[in-house]
């Protein structure tokens, strides 16, 4: 009897170990677009750190503002110095949850649609955002893709009138991250 209890306890423990699978990426790709008739701006960050916990649906992102790369050097300077104030606020982070976790099977290959809600912090301001995306299970790795828009003014980013027509009121943010088991 005792051994049976012990065996079943061990079984439960090992099951929990398997299901408590965490996935990590250190070279996630996040980029944003600003489209206006006057000018298109685009910047890429390929050093995004992100963790997904498949058992709880927790999803976290961390990035450095200064790792965003622009095609034009002066835009990058303005982004860091005037808009994001990267010296004062060097990091942006997101911490949220996959709200439809039950429909995603991390052990079966396929593309699943995912809904995520969480807190996005940057420029010293935190806002709740909700977005849709996909999670692709491919071998041992998973690929998360999402697209959403954010308004600079929601994060206290002031765009001077002089360049108001060159910078979109809403930025399109894209996320494309390949995770591997931790």
């Amino acid at each position: 009897m005792k051994t049976k209890v012990l065996v079943s306890m061990l079984l439960i423990a090992s099951l929990q170990l398997v299901s408590a699978q965490k996935y990590l990426s250190k070279n996630g790709h996040v980029w944003f677009y600003s489209h206006t008739p006057m000018e298109n701006v685009e910047a890429h960050n390929n050093q995004v750190v992100s963790v997904i916990d498949a058992s709880t649906g927790d999803i976290k992102f961390n990035l450095l503002q200064k790792a965003f790369e622009f095609k034009v050097a002066l835009m990058q300077e303005h982004f860091n110095e005037n808009y994001m104030e990267s010296e004062k606020f060097p990091k942006a982070s997101f911490s949220g949850k996959i709200t439809n976790l039950s429909t995603i099977n991390f052990k079966k290959a396929g593309v699943y649609s995912a809904e995520v809600t969480g807190e996005l912090s940057m420029h010293g301001i935190t806002k709740t955002i909700t977005t849709k995306g996909t999670i692709e299970v491919k071998g041992t790795s998973i690929i998360a893709v999402s697209k959403f828009t954010i308004a600079p003014k929601d994060f206290g980013i002031v765009i001077p009138q002089l360049v108001e027509n060159k910078i979109a009121k809403e930025m399109e943010v894209n996320v494309d991250i390949t995770y591997n088991p931790m």
């Binding site: 750190v49 450095l64 200064k66 790792a67 790369e69």
Partner: peptide, 11 residues
């Protein structure tokens, strides 16, 4: 460029 989980160098 700073420190997240690792130190990051760009360019």
């Amino acid at each position: 460029t700073g420190y997240l989980m690792d130190v990051i160098l760009t360019k």
